[in-house]
Structure formats: C-alpha cells, structure tokens
Nucleic acid binder design. Sequence first.
DNA 1: GCGACAG
DNA 2: ATCTTGTCGC
Length: 286
Amino acid sequence: MQRGDGNDDDGEQTRSMQTGGRNDDHGEPTRRWQTGDRNDDHGEQLRIWTQQQDRLKSQLLFYDDFSWKVSPALSISLPIEPLCLVGGVDLSFSKHNPSVACGALVVVNIKSMEVIYEDFKIVHLHMPYIPGFLAFRESPVLLMLLERLANEHPDRYPQVLLVDGNGILHPRGFGLASHIGVMANIPTIGVAKNLYCVDGLCRERIHMASGITDETPLVGNSGKILGMALRSHRDSIKPMFVSIGHRISLDTAVDVVRECCKYRIPEPVRQADIRSRGQIRAHFGA
DNA sequence: GCGACAG
DNA sequence: ATCTTGTCGC
C-alpha cells in the first residue's frame, strides 16, 4: 500500500497529458466554463475536443496486444504468463463542492483479490461533465496517477486497467477507457454502470435480453458490436456494460471482468470507488 | 420542438 | 457523480 495523502496542488501539470503531448496550448480553457461566465463559444471547445478524439481514435487496437492469458491452461513446455495485476480507476466528488474530486488508482492481485497498491490525488476540476467528453474532465488526474505508479513502483504496474466508463461504446467510438488506453499506452477495458445509448442502442431491449442470458452483445444499428451487457451474478438485475478500451479484444475483456467480479462491480473499480470516496470524506465533510 | 445523455 | 433509511434475504 502506498501514499495515503493525496492532497498536493491543483493538478495543473496534468493538463498537457490530455492533449496527447502535442497541442499544448497554454491558454486558459478553464475560465471558459466557469459559472457566471458570459456566453463564450462552447461549441468551439467541443469541436477541438472532437478533433482530438478522432485523431487519437486512429491509434486504437482491438486485439489482445500482450502476452498474458486470463486463465492459462497447464503447459508442460512453454510457461504462459498469467494475468495477475489488474488496475482500476475512478473519481469521487465532494458533496458540497462539485468541482472538488479525488482520483484513485488501485491495483489488485487477481488471484487473492487483494489490493496491492493504492494512490490518490485531490484535484479541482475546471471542466464540466459533458456526455461524450468525459475524458477531458477525468483523464488528466488518472493519467497522472498512472505515470506516478510507472515511475515509483514499476513492478506493480497493472497488466490491464479497468476504467469506470466506456471504451468504444461512445458516440465517436472513443470514450474515457479508450482515451486513457491510448494516452498511457496500456490495455484498458471500459466498465459502465449505465448504458450509453449510442448507435440505436436502447435500454428496454437490452434489459429484457439481459434478463434471459447473462451476456448480451451490444450491436448498434451500424451492425458493429460495441460491447457486452454483463450480469456477473444470476441474481443481479442490473447488468454492466463492458466495452473495449484499447489493446484488447471484447472476448478477453469480458473474461477479465468476470474474473474480477467478487460483487456486481469488478473489484478493481469497486475498490477505487470505495477508497476515493473515503478520501473525500477524510479531507472534507462527514 | 422535445427528450435523452458514461461520470 | 451526489442527495439518502430502512429493509428484504442468505
């Protein structure tokens, strides 16, 4: 276990990470979104963000770009690297100050289901939540946490990362999980608690189908398979919505999520949620 | 025009 | 995301 602190500064240093390393405009995108500001051109910001998503999207890989296996079969000859370290990230928000949040990164040993690493950072978010652009609000702090882990404890760096949000199940096929995956160059999986209705997907039909089977492919009107509705337990009514983030196939992504499910939400994401919420309570109101 | 809209 | 008590069940 690492660092219980998590209250450094404001996270300005993370701004460049969301822009993909290029495009580091040192302007002030922050003022644009503050309450009471005049009718600035929000559409212009959305256009820039959309371009950025489209550009990063071209780097996505939809296959297993790693050598480990979730459950390696016994092999006499060649030892197969097993999946061991699974990461999870999430943000929790302050009750009274919605712009104050705590980002969390945890790493779980999949065999023991124990948390072997945790790190937090309290940040002040300048961007509002805009559906379809979640990454521009939440990825900077999460990328910073990943980088800190890589620098200070590379031996505990996860083989795959579960992200609270969507991967390619997104209006432009590039949600938070994909964004983080490309930026940090790590295999990622999107795990959403609610269905993002995209490409003709609708709740009613998915919920009905997921009542029958525990795995319902999410096929859009375009015919593309955008993800999988998953019920980890047969008694859980509400499914999860798993989608490819980056450098992984949907089949493997589903295997990984299933392997991590002690409860409805996969343990890495659940722990990141619980612990970031705990940090918020510790630093702010009861 | 109206509603819906990951977190 | 967050506001919130008890409650039904193993």
